[in-house]
Design a protein around this nucleic acid. Sequence first.
RNA 1: GCCGGAGUGGUGGAAUGGUAUACACGAACGACUCAAAAUCGUUUGCUGAAAGGCAUGGAGGUUCAAAUCCUCUCUCCGGCACCA
Length: 759
Amino acid sequence: MKNYDHKKIEKRWQKEWESKKIYQVKDNVKGKENFYTLVEFTYPSGNLHVGHWYAFAVTDIFARHKRMQGFNVLYPMGFDAFGLPAENAAINLGADPKVWTYEQMDKMRAQLRSMGAMFDWDREIVSCDPEYYKWTQWMFNQFLKAGLVYRDSTKVNWCPKDKTILANEQVSDGVCDRCGTEVEQRDQEQWMLRITKYADRLVDDLEVLDWPLEIKSAQKNWIGRSEGVEISFEVQSSKFKVDVFTTRPDTIFGATYLVLSPEHELISNLKAQISNWEEVSKYIQQTKKKSELDRQQSKEKTGVELKGVRAINPATKEEIPVWIADYVLAGYGTGAIMAVPADDKRDEEFALKFNLPIVRDYKKAGFDDFGKKIIKYKLRDWGISRQRYWGTPIPIVYDPEGKAHPVPDKHLPWLLPKDVDHKPSGVAPLAKSEELFKRTEKIFGKGWKPEVETMDTFVDSSWYFYRYLDAKNKKTFADLKRQNSWMPIDLYMGGAEHTNMHLLYSRFWVKALFDLGLVKESEAYKIRRNRGLILGPDGNKMSKSRGNVVDPDEIVERLGADTVRMYLAFMGPYGVTVNYPWDPNGVVGVRRFLERVWKVKEKIGKGKATPFLHKAIKKVSEDIEEYKFNTAITQMMMLLNEWDKTGSILEDEYKILLKLLAPFAPHMTEELWFELGNKKSIHTSSWPEYDPEKIVEDMVTMVVQVNGKVRASFEERKNREDGEVISRAMDMPEVKKWVGDKPIKKSIVVKNRLINFVT
RNA sequence: GCCGGAGUGGUGGAAUGGUAUACACGAACGACUCAAAAUCGUUUGCUGAAAGGCAUGGAGGUUCAAAUCCUCUCUCCGGCACCA
C-alpha cells in the first residue's frame, strides 16, 4: 500500500475538481434547497496568512457539510481591493496601485486554491474592477436621489507638514507616523450618508435575527438610542441659552454646574463676557490636538471655567458656573451637559478636582418638568469621502457656479483616472489628474469640474454579497430572480472586528436598497457568527515585528492542506470570539490522525459492526451544525481508537468515516474514496444518517454521592424506579461508611445519572 | 474611559446546574532498532505512604449539588467612526 503523499493527492484533486467544475453552482437545482454561506471577502494583501485559512478553510467545512446534506450551496470568494495599502505602495515604492493590486490578487488566488475550498471562481468579484464599482456609483446616485446623501463637515487628522489627511492607523501618540509631526484635528467637508435616519430600524430589526446576543448588544450600544430631555439653561446677563441633553432630568435639582464641549458655539458668542479668555482659548487650542478617542480615554479630567459666565438652574433658580472640558464631545447630544456630581461618577470626579459644589440631598423632579422629551443617538451619519486615490470615484461633477450634480448613469462607470501623482501635496490625488478634468469638460461643458474624492472602502463591502449572485450582469447589479434564489444569506461568518462598523453599514445599505425597491429583504444576514483570531505560538497576535508569524504555505507544503484545515478546526469551537494560539506540535497530532485513517483501510475485512459508529455519526452531525468542529473531530478520533482494538473493520463503516471526514479533509478522503472503487466524487455523495435504535443503551452508570461528594458508582439498568436505586445504593459499603450513624435527611435522585444522600 | 468577549492540567481544549479535565499535544518510561526517526504500549491535575484532602483568574453568595447561576474584583483580547 502506498504512503499518504499529500502533495500528489492535493494537487491532483484540485486540478480534477477544477476541470470537472464540481464546485460550479447553479442558481436553482430541482429538488434542492439553496444555502448561501458567506465569509467576508479579503483585502488582497498578497500574502495569505493563517487568519485567512481560519476564516475561509474552516467555514468551507460547514459549507461542504451542508452540500452533502443535500443543499445547493453557494460559497463565493472575491477581493475587497480598494484601500490604503495600494496607495502606500504607490507612495513608498512608486508602484501603480492598480498594477500592484492585481499582482497581489494573482498571488492570493493561487494561495486560496491551495486550501481546497469549494469556492465557485466563476462568481469571483473584485471591488476595484470598473464593472463592480459602476454599481457602487449607481447606488450612490440612487441614494442621492432619495435624499440620503448630503454635504457636511467632520473632524479629520491633519498632518501640517505632509499636508495630508491621515487615517487613524497612521497616527500614533498624536504624531504622524511618516514624519513625526504633531497631528491636528481639522474640519473637512465631505459627502455624508444619512444612516441616522435608519437608527430606529437598525435597533428594532435586530430582534428577529438569529444573531448572538453579544453582537446585538454591541450594535445597540453603538447606535446608542437613549430617551432623555432637552433642558434650556439661561445664561446670566445675555440673550443666550445653553441647551443640555440629559437622560436623568429627575436629578436637575442637584445640577450644580454646566460643562460645554470646547467646540460649543456659545463660547465665541460670549467672548466679550469671558474674563479669562486667554486661558479659555489656550484650552480650546489644546483640545484641537487631541482625537476624540484620546479625549475619552484620558483618566485625568481637564477643564477651564468660563469666568464671568453664569447660568441659571431652571429648577433651583440658582446661579451656577459654566465650564468647558474636552470629555464633553461636540458630536453627541447638544455638546453640553448639566453636571450632577452627587449622582454621576464622572461629574463627581470633576467637581472634586475643581472644587465645585456638590448638593447631596436634593428634590427629585418629574421626567419632563423642565424640558421636552427627546430621543438621541450616539450613532453619527456616515462620512464616505476620502481624499485618496485608490477608491471608488464619487460620481459627482460641479457646474461653473460650483453646484454639485450626479454623473448620469449612462456615464458610469465614472472611471478612476490613471494620470495621477501619488506624492502627498495638500490636495486630493484626483485633483491632479488632467484626464479627469478634461473628461468632465468634454462631457458636461466648459467650466465644469469633477469631484476629486473617492469613497470609503466600507461602501464597497456594504453590498458585495449581491454581486456574487450575478457577477457578470451588465444591466443591473444583481438580477431580481437570482436575488430571490439566494437572499437572504443563510450564514455570514466573519471577524469580531466587524461587529460594529461593517455589519452596521451594510445593514443600513440593504435597508436603503430595500426602501428603493431594489432588493426584497431589509436584512441580508439571517445568521451571523463571529470568529476569533489565531495567535502566534507565543500567545500574542501574529506580527512581523514580534517574529511569531506562522506561514501557512510552508505548513501546507510539509503537512498538507487537509492537515492545516483540520488542525484549525480542531483548536477550539468556531463561531465564538475566542482566540487560539497556533501550536506547531499540535498540528502534528492531526496529521497523525489522517495517517491512521489512511492505514486503517488495510484492516477492511469481515469484522463485526462497531456499536460506537452511530453515536459518532450523530455527534459529528450535531456538532458541525453548531460550529463545534473540534468536538466533531474528537468523535472521529474516538471511532478510530475503537477500530484500533479490533482485528478488522467493515468496508461500509469505513466509507461512513470517509464521508464524515470529507468536509474536513476533502483531498485525502477523495483519494481513498476512489481507491475503494467509487466512480463519483465523495463530495457529491450524501451525508450519512445514524440509526437511532443503535444508540440506545440499556445500562447506565449511577454515581453515588454523600453530601455532594462522589463516594461510589454502580452499573444499573436504565430507568429503574428511584426507590430501587436508593436502596441498592444504601447497601453499598462505601455509602454505609460515609453516612455512618447519621440519619439521612434527604435522598436526591437524578434519573439515570446520580444519587445524592444528604445527612 | 465607553461598548462587547474570554480566563479550566505543562499546552489547545471537554463538560452550560449532576462523576471536572473527553480528545489531542507535550513529558516520562518501555517495546522495536546497531542507532536514531517513525510507529506501538503504559503512565501523566496538585498533594499524600495510604485513607483521603485540594483544584476551573480572585473574593463572597444561592443550591442537596456550581467551571456552569448571582454580586464584587483582577488580567487579557476585539471595537471606538479614515486599517480592512
